[in-house]
């Protein structure tokens, strides 16, 4: 039976602005299915984003949505969560928005372990502004500002999140469309700061410059360069060379920030 996406969408905003073949739409569908699985109510769910292609996502969803300054999704979302701790807060953004402009907010949100879910759509480029290289652009790849190849090494966003202290980190791809909603649903249900990195395709500004002939070639590239975590356990280091792991990469239980903060308020009031 077909899934009814319409009840979660703002139909007057569609069709969306994303280019033909852009994976952001696939991620948005995954997010809608995940929200449906978790049974989140529209009035109790805030979806917060910064600026960029991926950050246009909340505009199409019929929830409490907040479209904020570039890279500042985590800061605004922290404010929402602190003011209304009972709300489910979901952040969406791209790789540039999350790890370059908003890099500082991102790592500190991870460190704080506040109960929110951050979905980072990593298309390895700044799509909206014309294909400049981002911190997630792999070494040697071409962008409009690195026409002879990018000399910088790329961020591993999942490892960055683990290192910064996020308590749930997962990675999926736009190719594995069925897996996206399961990862996001698990992240939403996890208590603490959860990061879901979704490897995405940008046919317009990344694919064209990096010799991908079609959207399908980019999708197949996502399939070929990724390995599920469980399968990787049985593989040798040679087999894993150049592969990216997908699935739930890290999970732990730690004190949650809004609860800890409530205790601080209690202590302060008791001291009066």
């Amino acid at each position: 039976m077909a899934f009814d996406y319409d009840k979660y969408l703002r139909p007057n905003k569609l069709p969306h602005i994303w280019c033909p073949g852009c994976g952001h739409g696939i991620v948005m569908k995954g997010l809608i299915r995940a929200i449906d699985t978790c049974g989140l109510k529209k009035e109790d769910t805030a979806i917060v984003s910064g600026i960029g292609c991926a950050s246009r996502l909340p505009g199409y969803l019929d929830f409490c949505t907040l479209h904020t300054a570039h890279g500042r999704a985590a800061a605004f979302a922290t404010g929402v969560k602190m003011a209304r701790p009972e709300m489910n807060v979901i952040l969406v953004g791209g790789d540039g928005d999350g790890t370059a402009i908003g890099g500082n907010h991102f790592i500190h949100a991870c460190r704080r372990n506040i109960n929110m879910t951050y979905i980072i759509m990593n298309n390895k480029i700044y799509g909206m502004t014309g294909g400049q290289f981002s911190p997630a652009t792999p070494t040697g790849d071409k962008a409009s500002t690195t026409v002879y190849g990018n000399p910088d090494p790329a961020f591993d966003i999942a490892k960055l999140a683990i290192g910064a202290g996020a308590t749930f980190v997962a990675r999926g791809t736009a190719f594995h469309a069925n897996q996206i909603d399961k990862l996001i649903a698990e992240a939403i249900q996890h208590k603490g700061f959860s990061v879901v990195e979704i490897l995405d395709d940008c046919p317009t500004t990344y694919g064209r410059r990096n010799k991908f002939k079609s959207v399908i070639e980019m999708m197949n590239h996502l399939k070929e360069t990724t390995v599920p975590v469980k399968a990787a356990e049985k593989m040798s280091p040679e087999q894993l060379k150049g592969k990216v792991l997908t699935g739930v990469l890290y999970k732990e239980e730690k004190p949650e920030y809004t609860e800890e903060y409530a205790k601080v308020i209690q202590r302060a009031q008791a001291a009066k």
Binding site: F3, Y5, P15, H16, W18, C22, G25, I26, K29, A177
Partner: peptide, 17 residues
């Protein structure tokens, strides 16, 4: 198999079995 509906990024296909 619903692959078209699952993967369409534009919400343009609905398959009703």
């Amino acid at each position: 198999c619903m692959q078209c509906e699952l993967r369409c990024p534009d919400f343009a296909i609905k398959v009703t079995a």
